[in-house]
């Protein structure tokens, strides 16, 4: 017998999940967010551990040797080496070293033809000084302070921290670049560390100048100059985005340190004659 067809409605929604898609996405986003944060935390701890161990594995001598060998990969082939400045910086460094093992390191000081006044530290005991800075330096004491400041970065191994910091920023931004770019945020956090490094190196520089001259006269000159240049009235926002603390803040720090350790800002400033530095400070 032929059956009669009776139309029947198919029940609605049998082929789809009725859970909220927003809930599903939120759960996934939270899960991946936590995983990403854990991965970044792990990367940070790993890099931090490597960084702290690196200092123990590579001493100052070895770092300078590595700098001589591989420094050109990090920009250490810029400008020309200046033997006068190298002799001078070695003299300043020696004045701070009790351990003879770390004296007379073969630092590289390179003069770069830039039209702004500044100095930089690269990993491996390589220092860059701009031509303009040498031209504008009013005294040997001022030059000594700036070079001592750069030696402070070398002494405190700030270059290692910077490399590992950059490595962390690189890994983080690579990991987060999938959908969101927050590289800038990490860079801002990095800037805070860099500003702290500057202050730490200023403290070292003051000690270094005092050790070598018996006073710290001329140490403020460089900041006064750049302070005038930048007007020093930096807004809080500008200073937040800066790698260096404002000059006024650094001058205040120098003053505090001098009061604390009894450094004297009054003393004889020696006129700067760069081409005589080698002869003057050569190790006999």
């Amino acid at each position: 017998m032929k059956e009669k067809f009776t139309p029947k409605k198919i029940p609605e929604g049998i082929n789809r999940t009725h859970e909220s898609q927003v809930k599903d996405l939120a759960a996934l986003a939270i899960f991946f967010g936590i995983m990403l944060l854990l991965a970044l935390l792990l990367a940070f701890l790993l890099i931090f551990a490597i960084n702290s161990k690196l200092k123990n594995f590579i001493n100052y001598q070895e770092e300078v040797a590595l700098g001589a060998r591989y420094g050109h990969y990090l920009g250490g082939s810029k400008g020309n080496r200046d033997k006068n400045l190298e002799t001078f910086i070695t003299h300043l460094w020696n004045g701070m070293q009790d351990d003879s093992k770390y004296r007379d390191l073969d630092f590289q000081v390179r003069v770069v033809a830039e039209d702004y006044s500044n100095a930089f530290t690269l990993p491996g005991g390589i220092f860059l000084v701009t031509h303009k800075f040498l031209e504008e330096s009013s005294s040997e004491n001022e030059l000594a302070f700036v070079l001592c400041h750069e030696l402070g970065h070398f002494y405190h191994r700030h270059t290692f921290s910077n490399i590992t910091q950059q490595l962390f920023i690189g890994i983080s931004s690579w990991a987060l670049n999938m959908e969101i770019k927050i590289e800038k945020l990490f860079q801002l956090i990095g800037l805070k560390f860099q500003r702290d490094h500057e202050i730490q190196s200023d403290g070292y520089a003051l000690r270094c100048v005092n050790n070598n001259y018996g006073h710290v006269a001329g140490s403020k000159d460089f900041f006064r100059k750049i302070g005038k240049l930048k007007n020093s009235k930096l807004s809080k926002l500008t200073s937040f985005f800066s790698t260096h603390p404002p000059s006024m803040k650094r001058l205040e720090f120098l003053k505090k340190q001098s009061n604390k350790y009894g450094y004297n800002f009054v003393g004889e400033k020696i006129p700067l004659v760069v081409h005589e530095l080698k002869q003057k400070y050569a190790v006999p």
């Binding site: 082929n15 789809r16 999940t17 859970e19 898609q21 599903d24 996405l25 996934l28 986003a29 899960f31 991946f32 959908e179």
Partner: peptide, 19 residues
């Protein structure tokens, strides 16, 4: 749906977004 399914496909499971 694209974002949801991309995340889901990383860990597996039902892609409810495309059902």
């Amino acid at each position: 749906k694209l974002v949801g399914s991309s995340l889901r496909s990383l860990v597996g499971g039902q892609i409810t977004f495309y059902e």
